[in-house]
């Protein structure tokens, strides 16, 4: 019994800590993401104006670096709404949708992948088939038509996004579960009479955390890009909500006259997604199983 317990414990100690693999790119990318996230969360308190407050006398004021004033550091849009405040409010919704969609798709993908890797046989074939079908679907077209059909509330956009982002979770969860199957701590748990559910959640899942974190960061970036594309095409976030994609959609009519209207949210999406990817690169370098 004691030997079994110590074997059970070994399963946990094999799990690498985070501190020693925190590379420079992880740190750099991570701090940008954290900075944007903090601004997003604090946006109701730090934004100079309400994101919806219109001042029709103050329309299309240029940002400071293009000769504007400090009253509106990033200028105002065509309805006289403060651009900085809208950018902050947009950050909140953009991140919220990105994270929410990733959490839902992680739940779908991880459970499918783990079950496939653990039970193998027919279950694995079926899951593999689902992954194939998902990969063959044109994401953009189906997402557009689903949102067009079912309406575009924030919750619905999140759910539709997560229907298309679970595949990588499933692939990674499956392959690692397969590798872990024959390890001593899983065999020990089986010998000790643990149920399949207990083994999946208690023994295998903790070992998946690190590689799945890498997948999750990638998918947050992916979700943000997809949401912004949806909003850009007018089938995503709708006014009065604000997301960066929507800001670009609203700015595209002015692109030839006031290009900064489009470039500011465009650059923000680029910076955020780039920082998330950079963070992910650093994580990947530290975890050998994903190389």
């Amino acid at each position: 019994m004691n030997a079994t317990l110590s074997l059970l414990r070994r399963g946990w100690s094999g799990y690498p800590g985070f501190a020693h693999t925190l590379s420079r790119s992880t740190f750099f990318g991570g701090s940008i993401v954290v900075a944007i996230a903090v601004c997003a969360v604090l946006s109701p308190w730090i934004a100079p104006f309400s994101p919806d407050a219109q001042q029709l006398t103050q329309r299309l004021v240029p940002p400071v670096f293009l000769g504007g004033s400090l009253a509106h550091p990033l200028g105002t849009d065509a309805l006289g709404r403060d651009y900085l405040s809208r950018l902050l409010a947009g950050a909140k919704l953009t991140l919220f949708i990105g994270l929410g969609a990733t959490v839902i798709s992680a739940l779908i993908g991880i459970s499918m992948g783990m079950v496939a890797g653990y039970f193998r046989g027919r279950v694995e074939t079926v899951v593999g088939f689902f992954i194939n079908v998902r990969l063959s679907m044109p994401i953009m077209l189906i997402m557009l038509s689903l949102v067009g059909l079912l309406g575009n509330s924030t919750a619905l956009i999140m759910i539709v996004l997560s229907c298309f982002l679970w595949d990588r979770f499933a692939v990674v969860a499956r392959s690692i579960t397969l590798q872990l199957q024959d390890r001593e701590f899983v065999l020990a748990a089986k010998a000790a009479g643990c149920t399949d559910l207990r083994i999946l959640i208690g023994e295998i899942l903790p070992n998946l955390a690190r590689p799945l974190l890498v997948v999750a960061t990638l998918e947050v970036a992916h979700a943000i890009l997809l949401e912004s594309a949806l909003s850009f095409l007018g089938l995503g976030v709708k006014s009065p909500s604000v997301s960066w994609g929507l800001m670009i959609a609203e700015a595209k009519d002015y692109v030839f006259f006031e290009a900064w209207l489009l470039n500011i949210p465009g650059a923000m999406i680029f910076i955020l997604v780039g920082a998330i990817n950079l963070f992910c690169e650093g994580l990947k370098a530290g975890s050998s199983s994903l190389r």
Binding site: A221, L225, S228, A229, F232, G245, I248, K252, V255, F256, A259, L262, N263, G266, A267, I269, F270, I271, V273, G274, N277, L278, E281
Partner: peptide, 26 residues
């Protein structure tokens, strides 16, 4: 090169399209 790949990945298509328009057409 890896930075180039990373930037390409982070670039939303609609922004790169407009940047190209602003640069080459306008």
């Amino acid at each position: 090169v890896q930075l180039v790949a990373l930037s390409g990945q982070a670039m939303p298509v609609f922004w790169s399209s407009y940047l190209l328009i602003l640069l080459f057409a306008l």
